[in-house]
Amino acid sequence: MADASSLGFWVVPIAVLGGAVRVSTPFLFVSLGECLTERSGRINLGLEGTLVMSAMVGYGVSYLSGSPWLGVLAAGITGAILGGVHAVICGLQRVNDIAVGIALMLFGIGLAFYLGKPLIQPKANILPAIDFGWWSTIPQLHDALKINVLFLIGVVLAPALVWALKSTRWGLILRTAGESADAARAMGYSVNRIRLRATMTGGFLAGVGGSFLSLYYPGNWNEGLSSGQGITAVALVIFARWNPMLCFWTSLLFGGAAALGPALQSVQITWGYHLFGAAPYFLTLAIMIITCSPKRTLVGAPAELSITK
């Protein structure tokens, strides 16, 4: 084993890199899902509930079936169902999508804790990692490069979504619903149906993100599992200007920030770890203050979105 002390402060960037890869995946999936939903003109604040609920379901299915991949699938389906509930209720007249999101957050978390009690103790099979660091003799780097397949799927998914939103018929219809519901209706599309599909797909992705928490990292089920990643990811979408590729980079940034606090402590910088822990929130707020303007809506913001109107 290489002598850790010889790395000196290099421990920090390596830890941040590793943390970025490890911690970012739930952010990535939730934000990509939310990105889709918001581009269709609706905001789903309930993804925190989706994340927790699907983490629980994924863990339970993996435990009962022995297959973590089946768990990922079940988590995705759970997310899609919760997304469907959100979309159907929001599809009713006069219903506020932000409020429904908060309600579903509460419901999803509550249901997950309720049904998840018997799953706190058992040990389920978790997802494997692929070793990309075999060439390195530095164990820290080697380990930072053990990467889960879900992260790789996310890496491919982000540009794929950029392309799909921009260049496919499906993407065009979705964006139309997000920019002008009237225009979409004029073309003969049901805005509700478009948004239902977008919210369910978004829920599916968020669900997969949840399964990453319970089935890979940290890789167990307990009631403190999420500590707000789902809701942070919703803020992250605004940070990323509704662009899937920027969602990817921002997720990495937020993931790295989570690793920063402990890594700094390991090199003797011990002051203010509570504040370092809140760094992503300070950062998002600062970026929003700098980039927003009362005179125009945000660049890239879907015009139908309630939070930007």
Binding site: M1, D3, A4, S5, V11, I14, A15, G18, G19, R22, V23, Q140, D143, L213, Y217, P218, G219, N220, N222, E223, G224, L225, S227, Q229, A258, A259, G261, P262, A263, Q265, S266, V267, T270, Y273, H274, G277
Partner: peptide
């Protein structure tokens, strides 16, 4: 090497703290 996570039940932070400690040797 000690690392404080700041709270009593924070799984992701605990996992990251463990990673940092192992990385520190």
């Amino acid at each position: 090497q000690v690392i404080f996570t700041g709270d009593w039940s924070m799984p992701v932070k605990e996992a990251e703290a463990t990673q940092s400690i192992v990385n520190a040797g």
